[in-house]
Design a protein around this nucleic acid. Structure first.
Length: 683
DNA sequence: CGTATAATAAACAGGA
DNA sequence: GTCCTGTTTATTATAC
């Protein structure tokens, strides 16, 4: 005892109390602050950037400026056009839905809230490593595709125009050609410049590695441009970021426009090239710099959309600034109106647009899902409805929705704490807990997330195993998991310890305190039943108790939940609700588990089992994944041989599981859903 | 602001 | 006496 406590204190003291204190402090600040500031900040920031892209505020523009402006406009239009196309294209492409749905779409949906609303870290939190990767890849692919499309189109048009022009030229007197040619040449030039500029920008951002020679050739560069927009994070990292490996592969895909290009240059053509010239949303001369500058001053004292938690929130810039003044100074010096800044703005714009499109799509899907689910008549447990979550941010996870093992709620607190120490890897949904990889973190990561533990764990099993990241689950849920993973559903304390260390790198390194916590939890929670075994004492889980205690958490966002429920029941969703849903859905989507409840169980051995708990599978899902509960599961109840008394507790829940809902008994996903049921005891 | 939950810390007891 | 296991109490952070 003495020894243990001593050792514990040694480590925990620093990391524990103090560490926690400071850490949590950061987290807090970050969380709260960012959520508030983050939401508002980015939003405004976005607006600012958006408009910024426009042009110069001054009514007067020099020819050069005008040209620049025009280019911007053209680019803007082109982008919009592309985006539209993309959306159109993607939808069909998504048809392969089922397979890619969870894998790809999910990430995308997440991406929607990215840059502006989420920091890279947040995204990492929300996404599981694989998801993150998928997201990045998708982003890349999308951008590449768009760029390619765009340039291709432009090229084609030019070519066409050239041909036309050529013909016309032959039949027309040279003078006549004069103007047209001039116009066309100008346009061509403009386009080339635009492209070059774009490439340059990309290059500056480290997105594209251009060989000087290629860069020099106007149209030749196109292929490159199409090439490699890297992942968002990279984008934001700005010039500092080294080119990505992806480039190579992409380059090969470059369009072979050279031929055309060369040809094109030599001829003149009709004026209009751009596909659409409708007025641009932000065609106005509002402007970037001025805007920015002014905004910095305008912002209510003490705040600035691009400033939060002591650091600059300019994409890719996380420079620390002690105060607003310093930040403004930094903003003006580092993010003045220059190519890089404008390029970043443009990128941001593009990102936003893409996200918007995605948002629309996802919202639609969500609605369809809800509609579909709603159709299902009985919903024994409203709460367990897969849809759950809505609570804008965090709460929903609480919804016991089993299916939804959701974790991430990270949104709630946009941890602006971008600065926060980021663990190399970030599992899906961990919350802030992960922030301090070092010491014991106090953050409760929660039960909110925990329900999904099995699926989550299953999916990121390797991750937690190797990354020194605090798992986003409560001790109770982890313990339960450990126990349930066992065939016997019982473990000795030591075995539980071993499970912890085996499954989580975090518990290998961060010793001590957690053991105490484990013991504490075992004793404290009624759901853990100690049974005397021949060999000694083992711990088992009383699902019933476990489930019992969860409800409270669900309360997460009562209102939202209620709304959701009501919404479901009524079948009608009001706008706000929908919006909320859409919003919240992202995080959920992130978790594959959610999308695929059944998968969870399959992945993790444990999930199903717990049969003890009568899980009620979702109406539809249930059938698909009848838990392969093994008969024994129940036996688990407690094979604990001796100690009837205690055992009985176990059994009660177990075998009887039947009781709650025999028919539905099979808990496909996890037992999470299971009993939540009726408020039985709760209410 | 009050309440509930969870994490953390630590005191303490019983048994090997 | 030491260590492990369990129980219990207190404090603090968070979320609602």
């Amino acid at each position: 005892m003495m020894v243990e406590s001593a050792s514990e204190t040694i480590r925990s003291a620093p990391s524990g109390q103090n560490g926690v204190g400071s850490l949590s402090g950061q987290a807090d600040g970050g969380g709260g602050g960012s959520s508030g500031g983050g939401a508002a900040g980015p939003a405004t920031g976005g607006a600012g950037r958006d408009s910024a892209v426009g042009a110069d505020s001054n009514g007067e523009m020099s020819p050069a400026e005008l040209l620049h402006f025009q280019q911007q406009q053209a680019l803007q239009v082109a982008r919009q056009f592309l985006l539209q196309q993309a959306s159109g294209l993607s939808s069909p492409g998504n048809n392969d839905s089922k397979q890619s749905a969870s894998a790809v779409q999910v990430p995308v949906s997440v991406a929607m809230m990215s840059p502006q609303m989420l920091t890279p870290q947040q995204m990492q939190q929300i996404l599981s490593p694989p998801q993150l990767q998928a997201l990045l890849q998708q982003q890349q692919a999308l951008m590449i595709q768009q760029l390619q499309e765009y340039y291709k189109k432009q090229q084609e048009q030019l070519h066409l125009q050239l041909l036309t022009q050529q013909q016309a030229g032959k039949q027309q007197p040279k003078e006549a050609l004069g103007n047209k040619q001039l116009a066309f040449q100008q346009q061509l030039l403009q386009m080339q410049q635009l492209q070059q500029q774009h490439l340059l920008n990309l290059q500056r951002q480290g997105l594209v590695s251009l060989q000087p020679s290629q860069a020099s050739g106007p149209l030749q560069t196109l292929p490159q441009a199409a090439v490699c927009p890297t992942d968002l994070p990279q984008l934001w990292k700005g010039e500092g970021a080294p080119g990505q490996p992806a480039e190579d592969s992409v380059k090969q895909e470059g369009l072979d426009l050279t031929g055309t290009a060369t040809t094109a240059t030599s001829f003149a053509a009709p004026p209009k090239v751009s596909p659409s010239h409708h007025t641009l949303p932000n065609g106005q001369p509002t402007v970037l710099t001025p805007r920015r500058d002014s905004s910095s001053h305008e912002e209510t004292p003490g705040s600035h959309p691009l400033y939060g938690h002591g650091e600059c929130k300019w994409p890719g810039c996380e420079t620390l600034c002690e105060d607003l003044g310093q930040f403004i100074k930094h903003l003006n010096t580092e993010h003045a109106l220059d190519d890089r800044s404008t390029a970043q703005c443009r990128v941001q714009m593009q990102v936003v647009q893409q996200l918007e499109i995605q948002l629309a799509k996802e919202s639609e899907r969500l609605q369809a899902m809800m509609t579909h689910l709603h159709m299902r008549p009985s919903e024994p447990k409203p709460f367990s409805q897969p849809l759950n979550p809505v609570p804008g941010s965090s709460s929903f996870s609480k919804v016991t929705v089993s299916a939804a093992d959701s974790f991430p709620d990270g949104l709630a607190h946009p941890p602006t704490s971008a600065a926060a120490p980021v663990t190399p890897l970030r599992p899906p949904g961990l919350g802030s807990a992960s922030l301090h990889s070092g010491g014991p973190a106090r953050r409760r990561s929660s039960d909110k997330f925990c329900s999904p533990i099995s699926s989550e764990l299953a999916q990121n099993h390797e991750f937690y195993k190797n990354a020194d990241v605090r798992p986003p689950f409560t001790y109770a849920s982890l313990i339960r998991q450990a126990i349930l993973e066992t065939p016997d559903r019982q473990l000795t304390l030591n075995e539980i310890y071993n499970w912890f260390t085996r499954m989580f790198a975090y518990f290998r390194r961060n010793t001590a305190t957690w053991k105490n916590a484990v013991r504490h939890n075992l004793s404290l929670h009624k759901c853990f039943v100690r049974v005397e075994n021949v060999k000694g004492a083992v711990w088992t889980v009383d699902e019933r108790e476990y489930q019992k205690r969860r409800p409270p958490k669900m309360t997460g966002s009562p209102t939202l939940v209620k709304n959701m429920i009501s919404g479901l029941s009524y079948g009608t969703l009001n706008a706000s609700y929908q919006a909320a849903l859409a919003e919240s859905s992202f995080p959920l989507l992130n978790s594959p588990g959610m999308l695929n409840p059944g998968s969870a169980s399959s992945l993790l051995p444990l999930s199903h089992d717990d049969a003890g708990a009568p899980v009620e599978p979702l109406p539809s899902n249930g059938s698909s994944s009848p838990p392969r509960l093994s008969p024994p599961q129940y036996s688990h109840q407690v094979q604990v041989k001796e100690e009837p008394a205690e055992a009985e507790e176990d059994r009660r829940p177990g075998p009887p599981m039947g009781p709650p809902n025999p028919s539905t008994a099979g808990p496909p996903e996890d037992r999470d859903l299971e009993e939540e049921l009726p408020g039985e005891e709760l209410s």
